[in-house]
Each structure stands twice: as C-alpha cells, then as structure tokens.
Simulated scan of single mutants.
Amino acid sequence: MNSVRDPRIAIVGAGLGGLTCARVLQQHGRAVTVFEREASAAARPQGGTLDLHADTGQAALRAAGLLDRFHALARPEGDEWRVLDFATAAPLAQQGPSASDTRPEIDRGQLRGLLLDSITGGTVRWDRAVSGVTPLADGTCRLLFADGTAEDFDLVIGADGAWSRVRPALSHAVPGYTGVTFIETGFDHCDTRHPDLARLVGNGSMLVKGAGMSLVAQRNSNGHIRAYIALRAPQDWHVAAGIDLGDERAVRRHLLMMFDGWDESLRYILRNGDNGFVNRSLFVLPASHTWEHVPGVTLLGDAAHLMPPVGLGANLAMLDGADLARALVAESRTDDAVRAYESVMLPRSIEAATASAQGLDHLVPAIAP
C-alpha cells in the first residue's frame, strides 16, 4: 500500500511571519522546521510596539488560534494618537482609542513570545544561519547553511527579513534607501522619571512634524516610551556632519542644533533619553516587487515586500504566514499551494507597499506641514 508523505517544509527566520506560518501548519498536524540565525529568543531586543489590525494581524492570530491570548496581553488604550505643533507643543489633532479594539497595541517582543510559546518545542533550530538556497531540478530546494552543510526540502519559505538569504533564488531585487533615517532613543519608568513627557505622549503615540524632520514617541508596556527622531537625510548624514554615532554627546548636540526652534518640552526627547541613540536607516524593496514562480521556494513578510515601518509590515507578514500555511493544508500538491498563495500575496503587497510609501511621506514631510 503506497502512502503519500507530508512535504518537508523549512521556514528561514523566526520572526512574526515565519512563526505564524509554523503555528498554523502545526495546528493542522503538519511538520515544519524553523531555522534562525540568532542564538536564542533573547539574543536581541525585538523592537517597539505594534498595532495589530483586525483584517490582517488579528485575522492571522485567529487562524492560529491565538486571538484570545493576544487580547489578554494587548493594550487597546494604546490605539491613541495625538499630533502636536512643533513650536508650541499644543495639540493639533487627536484620536482616541477605538471602542471596537480594531487596532490594539502590543510590544513586538511579547507577540513573538506568544507565538514561540504556541509551537512545539524544538521547532526552532537556533544558531542555524542560512547562507542561501538552490532550487533543484525535481522541484525541491536545497537549503545551504553558513557552516557548509546543506539539507533538502520540498519547500523553503524565506521569512528572513530585509536582507533575506532566500530572496536571491527568486529575485534580483535588493532594498534601497528611502532617504529617511530614524534615530531611536528610549525612556524608562516614564510616569515617575519623565512625567511631563509621559503626559505629552499619553497612552498611545505622539507625532510632531516639521520640514524634513519629525518626532514620534510611542508608549510601550512596563512604563517605557520609545522615541524616534525621523530625518530626511543622506544615509551617511553623520559622516558629512563629522559625528561618530558612538559619541552620544556629539549626536545629542547635533540633534539639538537641528531641532532649534522646537518647543523645549519636545526637545526633552533629544536631551534626556535613557538608552542613548540608535541610527536606523530605512530601506525598502520596490513597491512593484514580484517574481516568476519557482518550485520549491517562496517568500513572506519583509523578505517579499519590505516597506516603511508605518504600521503595515508586521501585520502583512503574519497574514502572509497564515495564508501560506492554510494553502499548504488545503492543496494536495505543494506547488499548487504556493502558486495559490503567491497569486493573492503579491498583488496585496504591491498595494500595501504603495500605501506605505505614501505613509512615510506623510510621517516625515519634505516641507513643513
């Protein structure tokens, strides 16, 4: 009696999209292995807060059977925005949290932890860096590791982010600089140590816009505020300014000079961060990024559609993961499943990437609003 074995599936990258895909596959009894280059789940901070949208991120969590656990951790009050005037810090616009919890906030690290806890122990192989993939003539794919070893799979899913090692098997596209850099800082125990800033930011996010520069501050869990100084500038702006990014005082002096004329309550963000400064140049793939189908390999999340961080990327990565997993369960042939997934994901991501580019222009306008 002949039996049909389940496909051998590898996911490269233990981020939100890859873990969502793994969780949904395992819910349906499918075997999957996740390869992650980092040594452990605690290898590095996971970033700031995310608003999960009802029709994307939350829909993915519903498919993964994790929506109730998400709501137990989420902060619906975090779905609050206020826009302030740069010269006076007076409110220009404000939006309270939605009564329907359509976009509650959650720290990225908490969300990743929720997904990691939901999958079978040993699913993620930590400290297993991938160097590339080679599609094979029989429709399978060879996964190449940085240590020189290799393993073959029926499907390799590239969920390995902006600088994906899987993407070159499908596309020659490489991320390009947007012209915008975020400089990140943070404030601990903000309600007691930074109460005036805490009042300015409120329960959610604060935005202040000038000409080619903005300040964004977001409340995270545990009394932490994460702030971003957003600049339209060359990627090597610090070189032209003669600043060593490791010299916190020099960076601070330069930013204070750039934000001269802004209200002192806003310049507090530049003067008093607890966590120094981290320079983050923003890169994107072309909004129209697509590829010709190749058997044995596909992409999801930033590996497929890297876009500006204006609220869509993580949500789409999770929806990608859930959609791909459900297609793999529904279709009898792996290649048919991947084709079905790509036929939905690629047009969706082109639309979202276009909207995200417009969102970045709104977030950091070239001229004063």
Rank of each mutant, 00 (worst) to 15 (best):
N2A: 13
N2R: 13
R8Y: 06
A10E: 02
A14M: 05
L16Y: 01
L25Q: 09
G29H: 09
G29W: 00
V32P: 08
V34Y: 05
R37Q: 15
E38Q: 14
S40I: 09
P45T: 03
Q46H: 15
G48E: 06
D51P: 01
D51A: 11
H53S: 10
G57D: 04
R62P: 00
R62Y: 04
A63K: 08
A63E: 07
F70P: 01
A72V: 12
E77V: 06
D79F: 05
W81H: 13
R82L: 11
V83W: 14
L84Q: 00
L84C: 00
A90E: 15
A93G: 03
S98R: 15
S100M: 11
T102Q: 14
G109A: 12
L111G: 01
R112T: 00
L114N: 03
L115Y: 03
L116F: 08
I119V: 15
I119T: 04
G121F: 02
G122P: 01
R125E: 12
S131T: 12
S131R: 15
G132H: 10
V133F: 01
L136T: 11
G139Y: 05
R142C: 12
L144V: 11
D147G: 09
W163T: 01
R167Q: 00
A173T: 12
T178P: 02
G179H: 02
V180L: 08
F182S: 09
E184P: 05
T185V: 04
G186A: 14
F187E: 06
D188Q: 13
T192W: 10
R193G: 03
R199Y: 04
V201T: 07
G202L: 06
G204S: 09
S205I: 10
S205F: 09
G210A: 10
G212S: 02
M213N: 10
V216K: 09
V216L: 15
A217L: 08
Q218C: 14
Q218P: 07
I225W: 01
R226L: 13
A227E: 00
Y228S: 07
Y228G: 08
I229M: 03
A233R: 03
R249V: 13
A250H: 02
V251R: 04
R252P: 03
H254C: 02
L255C: 06
W262C: 00
W262N: 07
R267A: 08
I269Q: 12
R271T: 10
F277Q: 06
V278E: 12
V278D: 12
R280Q: 04
F283I: 00
L285A: 09
S288P: 08
E292F: 04
V297G: 00
V297N: 06
L300N: 06
L300F: 08
G301P: 07
A303F: 06
A303R: 03
G313S: 04
G313T: 06
N315G: 09
R326L: 15
R326V: 08
L328N: 02
V329N: 05
T334S: 07
Y341A: 01
S343L: 11
V344G: 02
M345P: 01
R348T: 14
S349I: 05
S349M: 13
A353P: 00
T354Q: 14
A355E: 11
A355R: 14
A357H: 14
Q358T: 11
Q358D: 13
Q358H: 13
L360C: 10
D361T: 11
H362M: 12
L363F: 12
A366D: 08
